[in-house]
């Protein structure tokens, strides 16, 4: 089967400093259609850079990016990209924020708004359509941002530590909720995180990336059954994965 996203021999160098700093070194990675892949690694390992390369926002020094088998290296393709900050525009209501990708795709305003209104209940936001972002809680803002990302209507979601800014309890809730959404919409996901538990809990496959310059040092399929609940974190298999990923990090 053709992969949804294919990164081939990607190298990137950070050049803003005094000397060029290699961030990613000949890294290859693929995400199959409908697959949930986590990219796990220490901070500074170029995870965010890799995601931006996949989104076409940065041109890699070497290597190629394929989306549905078409080469899109260095060109922003239509992907559901969600950076660490929610980036909801403070001057737009939740409804207007979420409708942005639809408007960008040329959907008429009226149709875009009714589309968002239909989706709001799925995200638990139906009462807040006309609120401005600064009137919403952190978890709600993150859900709104994810709704906006889903509405890009690309088969691929690139999520860059979307829950990093939330408190632990909210984060747990958001993980369960993300899984439910993913199972409903069946998109391919590349998920950046530095939490081993989060990666195992969510993913079909976890790719461990080394410290700078980033390379894949472990590509671990996660065969835990779905749908997953929080009990799964106590299963022997879960703990086995955890130890394995920890060990690869130590090397």
């Amino acid at each position: 089967m053709k992969p949804k996203l294919l990164l081939e021999n990607i190298s990137a160098t950070y050049t803003a400093g005094a000397e060029p700093l290699p961030v990613i070194d000949a890294l290859s990675l693929h995400v199959a259609p409908g697959e949930f892949v986590s990219l796990l690694g220490p901070s500074g390992s170029g995870k965010s850079t890799l995601l931006k390369i996949a989104a076409g926002l940065i041109r890699p020094e070497r290597g190629r990016v394929f989306l549905d088998g078409r080469e899109v290296t260095g060109r922003p393709a239509r992907v559901g990209y969600m950076p660490q900050q929610d980036l909801l525009f403070p001057w737009k209501t939740l409804l207007q924020n979420a409708a942005l990708p639809l408007l960008a795709a040329g959907v008429p305003r009226e149709a875009a708004y009714s589309r968002v209104m239909e989706m709001l209940p799925v995200f638990g936001l139906e009462r807040f359509a006309h609120y401005y972002p600064n009137q919403l809680s952190g978890g709600m803002r993150q859900r709104a941002a994810l709704l906006r990302t889903i509405l890009v209507e690309s088969g691929l979601l690139l999520l860059d530590e979307p829950f990093a800014a939330l408190d632990a309890l909210t984060r747990d809730k958001m993980r369960d909720w993300l899984l439910a959404i993913w199972e409903q919409f069946k998109r391919s996901v590349l998920f950046v995180t530095h939490s081993i538990d989060e990666a195992i809990y969510l993913s079909d496959r976890v790719c461990m990336i080394s410290a700078r310059p980033g390379r894949i040092i472990l590509d671990q399929p996660i065969t835990l059954p779905r749908p997953r609940t929080r009990q799964i974190t106590n299963e022997p298999l879960f703990l086995e994965y955890k130890q394995k990923l920890f060990a690869s990090l130590e090397e």
Partner: peptide, 10 residues
């Protein structure tokens, strides 16, 4: 970052 986000929406 917001400009980049809009670019990914084309």
């Amino acid at each position: 970052e917001a400009l980049e986000l809009l670019r990914t929406m084309q």
